[in-house]
């Protein structure tokens, strides 16, 4: 009797393990398929339509029906909006991470932290709607322009990456051993000296990861910025002139680009480029974490 039950348990164990492994394998298959499909469809522009990759990457004229597939305006738009978000949202997010890890009294954290979690949960389309109906008119009134463009997109993205940067940099600071805080304090350092000279440097790789994931979130964001960019497929003249980004241009043009056309292939090339950037960021994170160990 015991022998029978033991073997049945053993069989269950093997079946369970097989199912669990199969589910795990789905992750591997999924990312491989995504890379494969995007690589094939994202390079048709070059191999099938014989548009040179340089003309795609550095061309400044975008006219899908007219045979011009220069994506530089969108690449610049994406990079500028993301760069703005990192310059504003990065330091602000790290500062708030420091606040939660080192300063916030328990009672304040109990109120502020759920607020930050709600901020993560707000859908990007709602951020876009807020940008469109609240931020753009406000910017327009202040600057006497239409208000849309890279500045508006940068501000929206800054807010959207905050929760990511805050929570990850807070985590990075929390794992810094308390012995370092005490060591610094015992040498007569003020709290700010301890934070700026010991804790932040000690948590630097974790903070780098926080910022990189912020970049990843910003560069892939679509609707929130599409609603505030003004959507002009030209190189932006200023932060306040209408512009476009890789993501927003895809969503605008995809419905119009005919099946099998170079126009459509160019949009997939832009998506493939976004995917490559995302993969590069993942590798960057791996490098940042390796430095730590």
């Amino acid at each position: 009797m015991v022998g029978f039950r033991a073997s049945r348990a053993h069989r269950d164990e093997r079946i369970a393990l097989a199912i669990l492994m199969a589910c795990s394998a789905i992750f591997v298959v999924a990312i491989a398929l995504i890379l494969g499909f995007l690589a094939i469809n994202g390079t048709k522009l070059f191999f099938q339509d014989h548009v040179s990759p340089l003309a795609f990457l550095f061309g400044t004229t975008w006219d899908g029906f007219g045979g011009h597939y220069g994506a530089l305006p969108f690449i610049v738009g994406s990079l500028v909006a993301t760069g703005f978000a990192i310059l504003v949202g990065g330091p602000l997010g790290v500062a708030i991470g420091v606040f939660f890890s080192e300063l916030a009294p328990a009672r304040i954290a109990a109120v502020f932290k759920p607020a930050i979690e709600v901020l993560v949960g707000i859908p990007s389309i709602v951020y876009g709607w807020l940008g469109l109906t609240l931020l753009v008119p406000a910017l327009g009134a202040i600057t006497h322009t239409n208000g849309d463009g890279l500045l508006a997109a940068g501000i929206v993205l800054s807010i959207m990456i905050l929760p990511t940067v805050i929570s990850l940099s807070e985590d990075a600071l929390r794992v810094v051993p308390n012995a370092l805080r005490e060591g610094s304090a015992s040498l007569g350092a003020t709290r700010w000296e301890t934070i700026s000279r010991v804790l932040v440097p000690a948590a630097s790789s974790g903070i780098a990861v926080a910022v990189i994931l912020g970049i990843a979130r910003a560069i892939g964001e679509t609707l929130a910025i599409q609603l505030v960019l003004g959507n002009a497929p030209v190189l932006p003249k200023s932060l306040l002139s209408p512009a476009s980004a890789l993501t927003s241009e895809i969503i605008i043009d995809m419905g119009d680009a005919p099946d099998g056309s170079p126009f459509r292939h160019a949009l997939f090339s832009m998506a493939f480029l976004l995917l490559l950037i995302a993969m590069a960021l993942i590798i960057l994170i791996r490098l940042a974490l390796r430095k730590r160990t």
Partner: peptide
Amino acid sequence: QIVQFSAESLATVPSIVMGLF
């Protein structure tokens, strides 16, 4: 390791790119 790396990669695929897939 491969699963973990795949999951991390999958997590950074922008949703618009996932939509095109």
